[in-house]
Write a protein that binds this DNA or RNA. Structure first.
Lengths: 321, 321
DNA sequence: TTGAAAGCGCTAACAG
DNA sequence: CTGTTAGCGCTTTCAA
């Protein structure tokens, strides 16, 4: 009992006793059993995060930001991926909830009905539930950290319109359940048409993204190259850029290319790929911060209203538009 | 009790009882408490993995492979990153061991003394401990999944020698505790000199990798460009490639460039970057498989000897050498 | 400042 | 096939 006390609050133990405890701890190589601690105290140090894909550049940095911030608060990260399947998302949510985590982080606002029910139940039980990578202030059920994809789609279209282009295409990632990419595309087309341009969506093939960008570019050429092309992400755009320049095309004279994400490669190709920057790492660290704030609020007995944190996507002007 | 039994082995419960259980489960939205289960049964479904960096292309895919394979076996992934610090690695190992995980996955063979002690203790306690991304058959303390970095370094040097180059440089990543990159570099230099070439190591700056590659290339130009340059990874090589071609240099005529990792970008630049491919995803999935095998062996009472799984790095011939 | 008692939610072992 | 008993390793509460 005294050892347990020492471990949580060394000051409450007599110096001499503390000394003996420390030496015993070292000799035995004792490691406290966290499940027992959690069971007894009802407090969890696990935060569960569920994302579509760990390997993708998009989410990896967000997870890094989340992980770093959690670590500095003594929290641990239980990570699961869904491969962009709502069904797998539901399973993962169900699985991680069994750990009664200190927080549940999911990606985006689209979930299966059952998943939604689980999330609400967790929230009711006092577990902070946060959605990352999207933001819709009208949706107040869960905390959100992200930005409006519709606004970004519109921003992309408006930029190309401002550059004088009137024939536009949005190249989508070709992943059926990447709802955020679709949303950018829909808003892109709507804003482009509102601005008097012809616009539509082209679905990329679901292969390695740069290669998909190349292929999409060729496919568009066959249909008659538009004046401006926006892409669901910078890897697609980079592939298209490489294909275009390999053919001797001049950008933006022959065709304007606009990416999304401001991945490192966009700074390196030619005079730079024009793109929209998003603070991916910040989404993760802000998520952790918000989670901790919500926990504190809850402990203080205050009712958590839905909290939102925004990151601000910005157009990065470079040479391709 | 009967509910608990139903959850683990539905067949052991009468059909009528099962029906009532299912309906009660649904009505209450019951989720079994996993820490309690774990505490009572002594069985864990958590696998802890500790890697230098989540965001880096190198490890993200390995984690994805690990995660996918674990998921399909009902195991869950507790992930921590060290930012290439052995000190943080030690802290993380200590932290995750408190969960008495079903397995502990660490990166590489270099650890602090205390970390090593913890790993040995875990192993003794029956927890499979596996090292990924490196392989040294003479080191039989823990299971390993990876390859010999010394062999890769030598392979890289030998390839450039075979191409006829006699002035070689290895550009290291500039990350102090990336021991595997250093090991490739040392072996590269040794093999190059053994082959009669001049060779040494250049440390890249610790900035964004492609940019670091660009800067390293310029720095080497100032010192008199060598005939062949090997890089610690493809992002460095890609940066150097872009810098070289922007200057109008012809590869491999003016300088040969050789990367490591076979990242997607290497397929896309110019005629393709010559590189060494590593099945990053496989390292993760093989790790999970080995872990499960070790667990099974342990349960069957068989003593686990150190198990090793190799992935085979291969030279990918492309246009830059 | 330390220790004793009780219990967190589950499962193993056994009894009915 | 179902239920009872005991206990996993810790923390909470209260007494000494």
């Amino acid at each position: 009992m005294t050892v347990s006390r020492y471990l949580r609050a060394p000051a409450l133990v007599a110096p001499e006793t503390a000394r003996r405890i420390v030496s015993a701890l070292r000799q035995t190589g004792y490691t406290p059993n966290k499940q027992a601690g959690m069971l007894a105290s009802g407090k969890s140090s696990i935060v569960a995060a569920i994302i579509p894909n760990i390997a993708s550049s998009i989410f990896a940095e967000t997870v890094q930001g989340l992980s770093d911030a959690l670590q500095s608060h003594g929290l641990e990260l239980l990570l699961a991926s869904t491969n962009y399947s709502l069904e797998r998302e539901e399973e993962q949510i169900r699985a991680v909830l069994g750990w009664s985590p200190a927080g549940l982080v999911v990606t985006g606002r689209d979930h299966s009905l059952a998943a939604l029910a689980l999330m609400k139940q967790a929230k009711q039980a006092g577990t902070p539930v946060l959605e990352i990578w999207d933001l819709d202030p009208s949706d107040a059920e869960f905390a959100q950290i992200g930005f409006s994809h519709a606004a970004v789609g519109a921003m992309m279209a408006e930029h190309l319109l401002r550059c004088g282009h009137r024939e536009l295409v949005y190249v989508d990632s070709g992943v059926r359940e990447d709802f955020r990419a679709h949303e950018r595309g829909q808003a892109f087309v709507a804003a482009a048409r509102a601005g008097g341009a012809r616009a539509n969506v082209h679905q990329a093939q679901s292969v390695e993204p740069m290669e998909a960008g190349r292929l999409a570019f060729k496919a568009l050429q066959d249909k008659g190259l538009p004046k401006g092309i926006a892409f669901a992400n910078d890897h697609l755009a980079a592939g298209a850029f490489l294909q275009a320049t390999a053919q001797g095309l001049r950008l933006p004279r022959d065709v304007a290319i606009l990416g999304f994400g401001d991945f490192p490669i966009s700074r390196q190709l030619g005079g730079g790929l024009c793109t929209v920057s998003v603070e991916r790492y910040d989404i993760g660290s802000k998520c952790a911060q918000l989670l901790i704030d919500m926990q504190a609020a809850l402990k203080a007995g205050r009712f958590i209203q839905s909290a939102h944190a925004a990151v601000q996507p910005e157009l990065v002007h470079r040479s391709t538009t």
